Amino acid sequence: MKLYFAPGACSLSPHIVAHEAGLTLQLEKVDTQTKVMQSGGDFWKVNPKGYVPALELEPGDVLTEGPALVQYLADLRPEAGLVPPAGSLERYRVQEMLGYINSELHKTYAPLFRPNTSAEVREERTAYLFKRYQLLEERLATRPYLFGDTFGIADAYLYTVTRWAKYVKVDMSGFPNLLAFMERVTARPAVRKALEAEGLPV
């Protein structure tokens, strides 16, 4: 399998899950601005949506969208315990959380990365993020990971998007439980391997 990624982008989430599951992935770096791959190919031909992540299962068969990728990878190694069994209520709870992170956090960061975003919009989006993070801050007050003592795919996604806060200068000091979560996840060997493979600071 080949993972098309950009360092630190949302593709970090399936990359982490692969390491946690003990799966070997071939990596193909993508320039998100030019859509040119490190190998020189045109990424638009791989994923017509134009963004990472994309997972090539075999030549010509590509799966996209982070929440789908992390579930697919985790299901390849159920013994790793990264996701509950398909069809269980616990699985739907994880999907519920993936949807929340995807719609309420991930997309809210987008304008904060744009240099032409007005101060007014930046302030409004930051306030929205804080409101949405508060739910997770309270949840993490009673458990080390989103669903208890076990690291799972939703944790990988939350970790990935929350790493963006420092790059867009969003002050997360008001969320001590979330910051402690970030430290715990960063300390995981599989996470460190993914960060190092992408050339990111640990």
Rank of each mutant, 00 (worst) to 15 (best):
P189M: 10
H15M: 02
R139G: 03
D42I: 06
N177V: 05
L112S: 06
A9G: 09
Y167M: 10
E58C: 12
L27E: 13
R122E: 01
P14W: 02
L55I: 04
F175D: 03
G174L: 10
A197F: 03
R93G: 05
V168F: 04
A154G: 08
R132F: 11
P84I: 12
G8D: 08
G8K: 08
K169E: 11
R77A: 14
Q71K: 09
A194E: 03
E120I: 01
A194T: 07
S118L: 01
A110V: 15
G87S: 04
G81I: 08
L179G: 11
G148Q: 03
Y4T: 07
K131M: 14
T142I: 12
L57G: 09
D61I: 13
P201Q: 12
Q38F: 00
G22N: 06
Y100T: 08
V170R: 06
K131T: 14
H19W: 05
A187I: 10
P201S: 15
V62C: 05
R188D: 11
E96G: 08
V170D: 00
K45V: 12
A180W: 00
T186V: 10
G87H: 06
R163I: 08
T126H: 07
M97T: 15
G41M: 08
L27V: 08
E96R: 10
F43I: 04
T24N: 10
L69V: 04
T64R: 12
T34S: 10
L195D: 12
K45W: 12
E198H: 05
Y51W: 13
S13D: 13
L146G: 01
V36F: 01
L55A: 07
F147Q: 03
F181Q: 00
A119D: 05
R188L: 13
G66A: 14
S118F: 00
I101C: 03
D75H: 09
L129C: 02
A6M: 12
A194Y: 02
Y133H: 11
D61V: 15
Y157A: 06
L105W: 02
